[in-house]
Amino acid sequence: MVDVSQHKLVPEHTKLDDEAVEDVLQEYNVEKTNLPKIKLKDPALPEDAEPGDVIKIVRNSRTTDKAVVYRLVIE
């Protein structure tokens, strides 16, 4: 199987622990379900991810150095 994370189009995906999730939701003042989503079957997901987890994605941004976004794992 091909290692997806090595592809240049795939940014770094990491799973956030509960505490970090709280911080993020507080910072943006949103509910978990307001976050963009990522499907459970997404090949770029870390293996231990489950629905309800929040994934931190560090993109190599075109307009700035690094852009951090969050996605909620669904079904």
Partner: peptide, 15 residues
């Protein structure tokens, strides 16, 4: 691209 590499890669590909 979405199927093989995931939604973030698809986003990059669209751009």
């Amino acid at each position: 691209v979405h199927k093989q590499l995931g939604i973030e890669a698809a986003r990059e590909a669209i751009i």
